[in-house]
Design a protein around this nucleic acid. Structure first.
Lengths: 225, 225
DNA sequence: TCGTATATTTGAACATGTTCAAATTAAATA
DNA sequence: TATTTAATTTGAACATGTTCAAATATACGA
């Protein structure tokens, strides 16, 4: 049976779960590179091959973790977004929630980004296989914008969710590199850039900004991002 | 002898060269992943271990190529920058030259970016080991700004070279992903974003932009990028 | 319940990046 | 030149991600 199709039995589902849990624990304790697939299988009490029956690759174990955080978002985010209509706060909630989910696994999330940079990888955040999850993430940003008191120029609206998602990708990359205590530099970056972004969105509507805004919209349309 | 220290003999230098040439040829013809270190060594007429005497890893062969392009920049760029004092054109020259150098190796340059995303990798563009080359790249952008007719607000000047370098990194990433014919989408992105950047630099000096600009400068200072 | 198809599990085999001790060659020194 | 030291080269060995054919367990129809 192919990997990732519906698991037929509860027992199989449980085995998959055991492998994933073992993997994440080991990744967290010893890092991604130091953990071997043999270690993972042994910790889960199965043969090496079993891990590959449930996951296509070592990286896919990290991806499974990421998918899990996306699931959690579905329960947690809506109740967060209800709390405020301040655009900056709304965006900040999305971003900080993601970082909170990632926090204890920071050291090994770089692994995901690595395959991420490979256009050929099925795990690439820009690829076809990940489009569903990417669109879901973008939709959160769309929702943050929709319910906010600040509204963006309408020509920009269709592009902002994707741009914000891209922005978040950049933040995550920065965060992975960030060796400051508690990643406080990332916190400063988030706060500072969100400020600039929200201010820019407001300013973007001013008449003076017309030419610049039209250029930007034209470019976005041309690139069809 | 450790890898990368001064090669003592011309013969050794020649062996190193042979290995590098073989590697780049094979990478170009079959891609980075498909080419094995055994292939490379065989093509260069040496034993597998020899490749590791001269290069610490497979990725370092790609890095050697990158270093070579940086060297070429030193001869080519100055005579390009003399030709115009239009800021957009000056920046465009730097960026396009790099893409021209990369062009025929596009398929395998992703490999460099992959290790790039790993903060632990010595090849990471943000790491200590690559600081010299990074600073050199930034310096080109500094030079493009210096000799341009458009001048940036002086509080921004110290940060612009690094920001432009970062911007270029993003462009390269886009380019690696760009499957359009002749990567014309990247060309559009470069042209469009350069336009926005140069216009923004001009606008940044306007009184209206004061608050936004000060915020940005404050953030840059705080992050000490 | 029996037999068959399908799902799961196994562990050895494979591929490939990397290391390393030993062999060889070249350079430096006496 | 002979000897010693250092640089270069070798190829087997190793580590680890991944594949795969075979074995086992499970579900399902008769």
């Amino acid at each position: 049976m192919p990997v990732r199709s519906q698991l037929s039995t509860a027992k199989a589902e449980e085995t998959r779960e055991r492998i994933l849990t073992a993997a994440l624990t080991l990744f967290r304790e010893h890092g991604f590179e130091k953990t071997t697939m043999r270690d993972i299988a042994a910790a889960a009490g199965v043969a090496t091959g079993a891990a590959y029956y449930y996951f296509r690759s070592k990286e896919e174990l990290v991806m499974a973790f990421y998918l899990r955080t996306a699931e959690e978002m579905r329960v947690v985010l809506p109740q967060e977004l209800v709390k405020t209509n301040d655009l900056k706060r709304r965006l900040a909630r999305i971003i900080h929630l993601k970082f909170e989910q990632f926090a204890e696994h920071r050291a090994f999330l770089g692994a995901l980004f690595r395959s991420a940079v490979d256009p050929a990888s099925p795990l690439s955040p820009f690829g076809d296989e990940t489009s569903a999850i990417r669109e879901e993430s973008e939709a959160w940003f769309g929702q943050a914008l929709d319910g906010a008191s600040t509204s963006a120029p309408k020509e920009l609206v269709p592009y902002l969710p994707r741009l914000l998602w891209l922005y978040q990708m950049g933040l995550i990359l920065f965060w992975i590199y960030d060796r400051s205590h508690g990643q406080k530099r990332t916190a400063a970056l988030v706060d500072g850039t969100l400020d600039l972004i929200v201010k820019s969105i407001r300013i973007a509507g001013l008449p003076l900004m017309g030419p610049l805004r039209r250029r930007a919209v034209h470019l976005l349309k041309e690139l069809d991002v």
